[in-house]
């Protein structure tokens, strides 16, 4: 095996962080973010990353229930916050 599961996970997380940052920069350039929408989207993005990190790590350690619970506990609020934040941001103009 060239990369272990954890190494691959953190590489993908790094790539995703990069995409999220680009998204933030673009929204900011288009003047669509204020402190409120920015915080909601930011928190949602953080939770989404944490959800992926948690759930993949749980699968890697052989605890499938912890993985699915991770998706429910961290993934659901992440999606709600991201959707809400993006809708608010895109509705602005």
């Amino acid at each position: 095996m060239i990369f272990s599961g954890s190494e691959l996970l953190f590489f993908i997380l790094g790539f995703l962080s990069c995409l999220i940052m680009i998204g933030f920069i673009r929204l900011n350039k288009e003047n669509r973010l204020n402190w409120k929408t920015g915080s909601i989207v930011g928190l949602g993005a953080f939770l989404l990353m944490f959800c992926i990190a948690w759930s993949v790590s749980s699968v890697l350690e052989g605890e499938p229930r912890a993985a699915s619970m991770g998706m429910v506990v961290f993934g659901m609020p992440a999606l709600i916050l991201m959707t809400l934040g993006l809708r608010l941001a895109l509705k602005k103009n």
């Binding site: 590489f11 680009i22 920069i25 673009r26 350039k29 288009e30």
Partner: peptide
């Protein structure tokens, strides 16, 4: 112009990220 810039940015940052990622590893 904005969209093109965005795409160029994306490609630039993306390839820089990939290079950094590989170099980092």
């Amino acid at each position: 112009e904005k969209t093109n810039l965005g795409r160029r940015d994306f490609l630039k940052i993306g390839s820089a990220g990939a290079v950094l990622g590989v170099a980092g590893i």
